[in-house]
């Protein structure tokens, strides 16, 4: 594992100076990406260097996800709306400011993702494609694309891309929303969607999304051309 190293004496001196000047806001000047990477080695252990998780692993890739979305998730883990033992313990004693810095750092990173090979039944793919692109009026389900963007790359700064995570992760999140194990700020639109979807459709949506190629231009789109079909507490 290669890391940028700060000269020890210098790091200590910077901190001492920061402590001495703690009354001034200068103490909070933003560290470089290399300095942030060094601070966040603990995150790299699962999410990969610069948040680029390998698609061989379950942990989601977080590089390049919208900053507002990442920040919300950090708050959700810290404050008990999302459950993951290690994430909760890592974040328990972090200030809002540090969480914002961490989210901004990962949002700035370039993602790199090779979708894992997968094979899905044709009927699941067909149903999944319909749900993702058109939704299902009979079940009062808006399409995934109506919030996550036409190419599912997400919308800055609060709505995440649906690409670049393993299908197991995606279906686990929808299942967790359905069971109440994962929550977002109220009104929790995704909890509502997951309820309406049901297990069968969760599988179908996951299959279709997993079959899509990862785009060369991965950046979330800057805005949506219409209002959200549901009210979402996480989108401010």
């Amino acid at each position: 594992m290669h890391r940028m190293r700060v000269i020890p004496a210098r790091a200590g001196a910077v901190l001492l100076l920061a402590a001495a000047a703690a009354t001034t806001p200068a103490a909070a000047s933003r560290p470089s990406d290399a300095a942030m990477a060094e601070r966040l080695e603990a995150c790299a252990a699962c999410h990969g260097e610069a948040g680029r998780s390998s698609s061989e692993r379950y942990f989601p890739s977080i590089a390049g996800k919208p900053a507002g979305y990442l920040e919300s998730q950090l708050h959700n883990f810290r404050d008990g709306r999302r459950r993951h033992t290690i994430m909760e313990a890592m974040l328990a004693l972090m200030s809002d400011e540090y969480l914002a810095d961490i989210a901004a750092y990962y949002a700035r990173q370039e993602p790199k993702w090779t979708p894992p090979a997968s094979a899905w039944p044709a009927e699941a793919l067909a149903r999944g494609r319909t749900l993702v692109e058109e939704g299902d009026a009979a079940k009062d389900l808006p399409s995934c694309a109506s919030c996550h963007g036409e190419s599912l790359k997400g919308v800055a700064p609060f709505i995440p891309s649906l690409l670049g995570v393993r299908p197991e992760y995606l279906s686990a999140q929808l299942g967790a929303w359905r069971s109440g194990a994962r929550k977002a700020e109220p009104p929790d639109c995704m909890a509502e969607i997951a309820q309406r979807l049901g297990p069968q459709d969760i599988g179908a949506v996951t299959a279709w999304i997993a079959s899509l190629p990862y785009p060369a231009d991965h950046r979330p789109q800057p805005s949506l051309p219409h209002d959200l079909p549901l009210e979402c507490g996480g989108v401010r």
């Binding site: 901190l15 920061a18 402590a19 703690a22 103490a27 909070a28 560290p31 942030m36 060094e38 601070r39 966040l40 080695e41 603990a42 995150c43 790299a44 252990a45 699962c46 033992t85 290690i86 313990a89 890592m90 974040l91 004693l93 972090m94 200030s95 400011e97 540090y98 810095d101």
Partner: peptide, 19 residues
């Protein structure tokens, strides 16, 4: 399980230990 020291005024962005 790794972990981070707490954020404090003198150490607002602590370095973490990987799990």
């Amino acid at each position: 399980f790794g972990g981070f020291p707490p954020t404090t005024e003198a150490n607002p962005r602590p370095h973490g230990m990987p799990p």
